[in-house]
Amino acid sequence: MQISKKVVVLGHFGVGKTSLIRRFVEDSFSDNYKVSIGVHITKKTIEFSIDESVTLILWDLEGTDDISQIRESYLLGSHGIIFVFDVSRPTTFQNLGKDLISLKEKTNEVPVKIVGNKSDLVDAKELDQVLSEKNISYDYITSAKTGHKVNHLFEELAKMLAINA
C-alpha cells in the first residue's frame, strides 16, 4: 500500500524547522540561517516494506511568534503536525500550552508531535530541569545539526499516520 500524508511543520521563527526537514529529506545541514517565508513544500517517501510506503508531503511553514496568526489555508487537509521549539530559546516554548490550544482550534483532531530542536546547544540535564520547571511536555528532543532523533521523529510519525489511514 502506498499512501501520501500531508504533515505541517510549524513553530516560532529560527527554531530550525527547515533544517529538520532538510536533514530528513537531504541528510544535510547548514549553519546559515535563512528565513522561510510563506510555505515551502517537499516530500519524502518512507518505505516500510516492498509494497508498503508512506510519502510525507512536508509543509514547512514560515515561523511566527504568534501561532494564532498562521494562515488557516496552510493547515487544510493536514494529517499530522510537528510543532518545533528551540530548546536554547525559552521564548519559543514558554507559551507552548497556549500555542497548542490555538492550534487545536484550527486543526481539530490532527495529531501533533512536539519537538524540541537544537539539543546540541544545551546540556541535557539542564534542559530536562528547565523543561520540567516550566512544565513542558514534548515528544522528541532533536538536533538537525547532528541528526539526533530526526529520522526517528519522521519515521514514527509516518508509521502512526499509516496505521491511522
Binding site: K6, G38, H40, E62, R71, Y74, L76, G77, H79
Partner: peptide
C-alpha cells in the same frame, strides 16, 4: 484533501 468535499474556493499566499 485540501479542498475536501465542501470547499469551493481556497487561496494560498506565498507558496514556494
Amino acid at each position: 484533501d485540501i479542498m475536501g468535499p465542501n470547499r469551493e474556493k481556497t487561496v494560498f499566499h506565498c507558496v514556494q
